[in-house]
Design a binder for these strands. Structure first.
Length: 268
DNA sequence: AGATCTACCCGCACGC
DNA sequence: TGCGTGCGGGTAGATC
């Protein structure tokens, strides 16, 4: 499910359910999901979940003696299930808590979980600014975009510039900015960067309020029954009529990722 | 020389 | 049955 609003939704849901709980036992069914799998289980056992936060698309669990970072990648998700219930299909890691268990479930096995003793905020310094960080301003983006010929779509997906935007919201942001996703970033004006920041924040905060976007229908998966898909303007609407001008939306590939936009509205 | 582009990889489900 | 696709991101090697 993984863009910032979906991760934020999962973090909020988990905070409401398992904060301060003790991890009594851990099971790993697919070794490659966890880093340092030899010590992962013993590292986590008997630690308490003191806090759960988000940085970009990463979830960060603060434990007694260290931190656990989780990246959901394409389809990673969490389930909270009764202790006596068998793990679901595609569950690769199980955390046994007091009265329930937390399952990390990932159909495509792309998600990764890592335990470290140092604050991963330091380890994640390669990530750019959070969208709602007040340091995010037109001057910052213009500097990052200086002399660069990459498309705005690619720039928005670059986690070292702004952390948390993925393929859905990048397309939506370009649409709201009336900018072609192919627009070269070095050509944007300060005014356009400000509009972009405004739209980044608007789209992401609206999506968080809606509980994120659920593209496929997942059954009872934790915190991903989003409703934002109902308000998408371009993502997934290739060849359908533009909501603004009825021109058929166009679909192209930018950096190996599908990009949908209105050739009439997004000429900037 | 450094920035950028392209292909490809990773497991798997789904639709055609 | 087979093929293309995907809410992510890393890498290697080619190319600008």
């Amino acid at each position: 499910m993984p863009e910032l609003p979906e991760v934020e939704t999962v973090v909020r849901t988990l905070r409401n359910h398992i904060l301060h709980e003790k991890i009594h036992h851990v099971q790993v069914f697919w070794e490659r999901t966890v880093y340092e799998s030899e010590t992962f289980i013993q590292d986590l056992t008997n630690q308490h979940i003191q806090d759960i936060t988000r940085r970009g698309k990463y979830l960060i669990f603060t434990l007694d003696k260290g931190f656990m970072s989780v990246h959901l990648r394409m389809e990673g998700r969490f389930y909270m299930t009764p202790l006596d219930e068998a793990p679901k299909k595609h569950t690769h890691v199980v955390f046994y808590l007091k009265d329930q268990k937390l399952e990390f479930n990932d159909t495509r096995k792309f998600g990764r979980i890592k335990y470290c003793t140092e604050d991963p905020v330091i380890l994640l310094t390669q990530l750019g600014l959070e969208p709602f960080d007040e340091c995010l301003n037109p001057a910052y983006l213009r500097l990052k975009a200086k002399n660069r010929s990459i498309p705005i779509k690619t720039f928005l997906l670059d986690q070292s510039v702004i952390a948390g935007i993925g393929n859905i919201y990048a397309d939506e942001i370009c649409f709201l900015c009336h900018l072609s996703p192919l627009k070269k970033v070095k050509t944007l004006t300060l005014k356009q960067w400000q509009e972009l920041i405004d739209n980044v924040r608007m789209v992401l905060s609206d999506a968080i309020l809606a509980g994120g976007t659920t593209v496929r229908s997942y059954t009872s998966s934790l915190g991903v029954t989003g409703r934002f898909q109902n308000t998408l303007n371009v993502y997934g609407r290739a060849s359908l009529a533009c909501v603004s001008c009825t021109t058929p939306l166009k679909s192209i590939k930018i950096g190996q990722r599908t990009s949908v936009y209105c050739p009439a509205c997004q000429k900037g």
